[in-house]
Design a protein around this nucleic acid. Structure first.
Lengths: 346, 346
DNA sequence: CAAATTCTGATTTACGTACCTCAAAAATTG
DNA sequence: CAATTTTTGAGGTACGTAAATCAGAATTTG
């Protein structure tokens, strides 16, 4: 039988009330008595029954998710996953509120974070913007004892408790490696190839990191591949289409395109219209309805993906654990970089 | 506030005892009364508080995992993950027992399954062997109301409730696709290449399916690649080394090797000893200490992996849900095919 | 050493559900 | 319509913990 508080009381020779005081850090216990109780707890290997404790406290976990009002498929999908978690709230004892902020706006994000200082939720998850003022706002929250998790985009060198997202440098490296291997045959050599890179904005950390990883691998392992200047499409399908179409027209020998941001609908249209003869090798991020179709239709060759559902569920699990002062299962919470070819689409 | 049994009683105009009788399917309730109660339940949107119910029942979930006594790294890792789950048992209200059976032995597996008919655990997970008698034994268990989940290797056309493992045909297709793309440059053409396939045994379903997927893609999309007759290494490093070394000696123009089973240590040694000049492209399954080292050391080019930890945790979640008659979150429980290059190693 | 203060024990209620008993009410049977 | 059976109500205890009250004991203070 699992030991209970009653067993502790018996072993330590104290009353239930004293055990409760020790367990919940309430005052009014002499050091000697506290010692006896802690000894009993250790000797019994007691672990508090969280379900029973939460029942007694009729506890719910009030969490806040701060999401940018972005309209690309990935962010829409992420939002849907949070909403799905809201639906599950009653069964999971959570009470999740979504706060919307304008995208790419550090000050709005800081304002939203500051707002929460008074509210004191049991945890906060947000899509970080890599700026000093955001780091400071995050510091204030953790300083106030509120666990915070960054979602999709990290905030390094901050006090955030956890990052629920992929390693973007590794993602870029993986894309570079696939690009290099798909493009070069072991036998052929000598000729130079060009690769175009389409990003959303170089101001966003994930995009910078992906480019960094991509460039590093291409530079190190595939010196015969030349990376063209980055096209910043602002994650906008229309702009992306124009830019890619232009690039393909100007530069007939583009052998590959790496799209490391969103707005892939435009990219796909541009490649389709350019004609099959010169179809470049395309590697993109995020599995959405359009990239999936493009993968099946042989317009995109590989898609790197992060599973938004996993990220949201992981963030919630981690916030709960942090709120309860419990350790997290690192292996379980690691968000993986999914590589999809048309052959392993889910 | 979440509705409770008390609210139901009030709304339906009956006593708590009657609500309890309806909720738990106990006899002694007239159809009319039952109707009133069910109506109240529906109108309130009542959902039973599982934590409280389990506390009241002081319920634990007695689960049984049947594992083959295989000594390859993957199975050892799988076993470790189950043991880790055993350690977590007290916090997760599970009571997990491991039953060992000799590998590749349908009759032993059937005996182990039959044994459980009397024991009546709340759920059974096992690594299936694709044989009619196993299917029948599984049918007897589900017939007795015991939820069962197949782990790593599936049992199609059976009554199993769930499969916690990867789609092996898709895995084979993915390997084929990677092999094809890594080997052939878009420009070069004409010359025939040979690819060797190393399997454990063609009697095991996962291996058959992987080969099936691999062959299909190569046949369809890469007609200039020739697949050599399958080498059956019985997942044994020593045998695998001999077979691969032999094949490389006999067939100087082997351009690639697909290792779809275990026993990769032998494969790695054979490739390393064959010398760098003729180093073929190698795609293997399961990320272990040795395949990881080989990936970093450029002896293996890609590793397809299934995360044993995820499989075990998923199996437990699903068994719990089935035991409680709850639905499973399909998206959460889908086991993905991880593709690892040296660039995205965790 | 009495008074004030700090600890500690005993007991109770609560969380939401399960499960039990016993009596009373209602329905069914002969 | 009396006897029997079935259905229902009322109430309690339990699960393991939280949190509160209040009285009594131990300790410290002046």
């Amino acid at each position: 039988m699992k030991p209970t508080v009653h067993d502790i009381a018996k072993i330590a020779g104290v009353s239930l009330a004293t055990v409760d005081r020790v367990l919940n850090g309430r005052p009014g216990v002499r050091a000697v008595t506290r010692g006896k109780v802690e000894e009993a707890i250790a000797s019994l290997g007691y672990v508090r029954d969280l379900a029973a404790a939460n029942l007694a406290k009729s506890r719910t976990y009030p969490f806040v998710f701060i999401l940018p009002e972005n309209d690309n498929s990935f962010m829409i999908g992420l939002r849907e996953e949070v909403l799905a978690a809201v639906v599950r709230s009653s069964t999971e004892r959570t009470d999740i509120r979504i706060v919307n902020v304008p995208p790419f706006d550090p000050r709005a994000l800081v304002a939203a974070l500051n707002e929460l200082l008074g509210e004191k939720p049991a945890g906060v998850a947000f899509v970080a913007i890599d700026a000093p003022e955001v780091r400071e706002a995050a510091g204030r929250l953790t300083g106030a004892g509120i666990p915070i998790v960054t979602l999709v985009s990290d905030l390094p060198d901050s006090t955030r408790d956890h990052y629920a997202g992929i390693d973007n440098i590794a993602a870029g490296r993986t894309a570079g490696s696939l690009m290099g291997r798909f493009l070069s045959a072991p036998s052929t050599a000598g000729q130079m190839r060009c690769v175009a890179v389409l990003a959303g904005s170089m101001l966003v950390r994930d995009h910078r990191e992906r480019l960094e990883g991509f460039s590093a691998v291409i530079g190190d392992a595939y010196p015969d591949i030349h990376i063209l200047p980055v096209l910043e499409g602002r994650d906008d399908p229309v702009l992306a289409e124009t830019m890619i179409a232009d690039a393909l027209r100007r530069n007939q020998d583009i052998a590959g395109i790496y799209s490391l941001g969103a707005g892939n609908r435009g990219l796909i249209r541009a490649v389709q219209r350019a004609g099959i003869a010169s179809r470049p090798l395309v590697i993109a991020h995020e599995l959405t309805a359009s990239t999936r179709a493009a993968l099946i239709g042989d317009v995109i060759d590989a898609v790197l993906n992060q599973d938004a559902g996993h990220e949201v569920r992981s963030a919630i699990r981690v916030l709960k654990a942090k709120a309860d002062g419990l350790p997290v299962l690192a292996a379980q919470e690691r968000i993986r970089i999914d590589i999809f070819l048309k052959d392993n689409l889910p």
